[in-house]
Design a protein around this nucleic acid. Structure first.
Length: 501
RNA sequence: GACCCGUUAGCUCAGCUGGUAGAGCAUUUCCCUUUUAAGGAAGUGGCCGUUGGUUCGAAUCCAACACGGGUCACCA
């Protein structure tokens, strides 16, 4: 660790500072004013004749990003979370300490500078330092000042360094933070209650996905990291929380790519005595709210495509989407055999023996999903691929469900919750059969959940929205890694493995 | 999982048809009190991702593997 030649040199400097009574890591530091405020506050100096105001004194703290030494004076640019400020330090002002500063303070260190505002010959408003104190010594050198850190892998693995070197990466995360805050405000204003349900589940349910397994030592049992909060949130509706939501992580033990991180954030919300149509309207309202609060245009660009976010969103049934958007002949949809022939003619691989609903899903994924650019609700899903949603009263093969697609991918999934405990029990049994026939992502039986429904869950509609995908859409990010601060990465062979002598 | 591309100094990158490693920045020493990627002079710095193979000789050619990026597939 820290055995690189440059790091060794910096550690030497750090020790030298300590030896002359300058702690490399002092902790009695008080904040000054932000760099941007300094620039705003003293803008008037530009208009003054002597271009300086020695009667003023300000303290600014930041990391040294540029350092230009010139014998008995130096310019340094320091950066805080707001921006950059140029400071001028000289031997006249600092005395003997300046000699040590020249030798021991360098780019990457965090310093506190105090002095008066002035404008340099080249016209830049700067701080003329009367004092400079080390705040934190940096012993790992920063990447090159001009090209910065470009290596995408390093940027994800060392996000802190990415943030130091690339100020703009923070903007996505600022938008993300604001967005989540506004989602909370939106639901709180509608009298929803925010809750936290377990991350460690006895039975991982609520979605079709493989879970991560962990172990509880004192109980001596394995636990699953949750794949969805759904079944717990519905238990809360049974218990009397008529409007609840949870914004939190889910974990799915599946492949990673630019739209999938093994841990991701979603919001799920449930509202008793409302139906999925109400939630479709609520979702539109939420989009309008976010656009307004985050000042996002009605028409945004995502991955080179124009996306019109104006409400209400388009709405089309699952089957009609196959015919009208997927441009699949309605006759093909009539039986499994002709669908299979159609898929083969399009050279699409599929597992043999799929049901018609599963084949529909195949068709949807291949011919419809990517064409759904402007927000579109797909409704009337086959019941078989909707094991937790209520059947339609007129057509029992159809679920009272919708999914929202934007820019070619799914963003939200909502439906009238199945509250018939016997039907739910049978659907779990069906899922178990599906699981036994090889689909290890089918649901497991959750008897406690069925029991909860047995006590009576009021008619309820629920919905989940993928937060990461939503941030991607609103920040025009094509990789989920650009909206997750510390995205999952494969471990890399560690050269610094500690050797035991 | 398949295919394509990448991996060379701390960082950003050159390195042709094989002949034994380069630049800029950073860093070290020196000069320099208004610079803007400051400037000038002289240095230091490399398991060329890993492991094999071909060859008199490999950063370079071949293979496998690792990690990353992209496209597709799978998956919500």
């Amino acid at each position: 660790m820290f055995d690189n030649q440059y790091e060794q040199l910096r550690i030497e400097k750090s020790k030298n500072l300590a030896s002359i009574g300058k702690s490399p890591y002092p902790h009695n530091i008080t904040r000054g004013i932000p760099t941007t405020e300094f620039i705003k506050k003293y803008d008037y100096i530009q208009t003054q004749e002597n271009k300086r105001d020695e009667s003023k004194s300000e303290k600014v703290i930041g990391r040294i990003k540029f350092l230009r030494l010139m014998g008995k004076a130096a310019f340094l640019k320091i950066e805080d979370s707001h921006g950059l400020l140029q400071c001028y330090v000289s031997q006249n002002a600092l005395g003997d300490w300046f000699v040590d500063v020249k030798k021991l303070i360098e780019v990457g260190d965090i310093v506190a500078v105090e002095g008066f505002p002035f404008v340099t010959k080249t016209g830049e408003l700067s701080l003329n330092a009367k004092s400079l104190e080390l705040v934190t010594k940096s012993i790992v050198p920063l990447p090159e000042k001009f090209h910065g850190l470009k290596d995408i892998e390093l940027r994800y693995r060392r996000r802190y360094l990415d943030m130091i070197m690339n100020q703009e990466v923070k903007s996505n995360f600022i938008i993300r933070s604001k967005m989540i805050k506004e989602i909370r405000n939106f639901f709180d204003d509608k009298n929803f209650m925010e809750v936290e349900t377990p991350m460690m589940h006895e039975i991982a349910g609520g979605a079709n996905a493989r879970p991560f397994v962990t172990h509880h030592n004192s109980l001596g049992v394995d636990r699953f990291l949750r794949i969805a909060p759904e079944l717990h949130l519905k238990r809360l509706v049974v218990g009397g929380m008529e409007s609840v939501y949870e914004i939190n992580k889910n974990f799915r033990n599946e492949g990673m790519d630019h739209t999938h991180n093994p841990e991701f954030t979603s919001i799920e919300f449930y509202q008793a005595y409302s139906n999925y149509k109400d939630l479709m309207r609520l979702t539109e309202e939420l989009f309008d709210h976010l656009r307004k609060k985050l000042e996002i245009e009605e028409i945004i660009e995502y991955n080179g495509k124009k996306v019109n976010l104006s409400t209400p969103f388009k709405e089309i049934s699952f089957k009609n989407a196959l015919i009208e958007i997927g441009e699949i002949d309605a006759n093909i949809l009539k039986d499994t055999k002709s669908i299979e022939e159609f898929l083969k003619s399009k050279k699409i691989d599929f597992k043999p023996g799929l049901s018609r609903a599963k084949l529909y899903e195949e068709l949807f994924d291949n011919f419809v999903e990517k064409k759904l650019i402007n927000p579109t609700y797909i409704t009337e899903y086959p019941i078989e691929i909707s094991p937790l949603s209520r059947r339609d009263d007129e057509d029992s093969s159809i679920a009272q469900r919708f999914e929202l697609f934007v820019a070619g991918s799914e963003l939200a999934n909502g439906f009238n919750e199945l509250n018939d405990p016997l039907d739910q029990y049978d659907r779990f049994l069906d899922q178990i059969n599906i699981k036994n026939s090889g689909d290890d992502e089918a649901h497991a039986m959750d008897e406690d959940f069925v029991r909860a429904l047995g006590y009576g869950m009021p008619p309820t509609a629920g919905e989940g929205i993928g937060i990461d995908r939503l941030v991607m859409l609103l920040t025009n990010s094509t990789s989920i890694r650009d909206v997750i601060l510390f995205p999952a990465m494969k471990p890399v062979a560690n050269e610094d493995t500690i050797e035991v002598e």
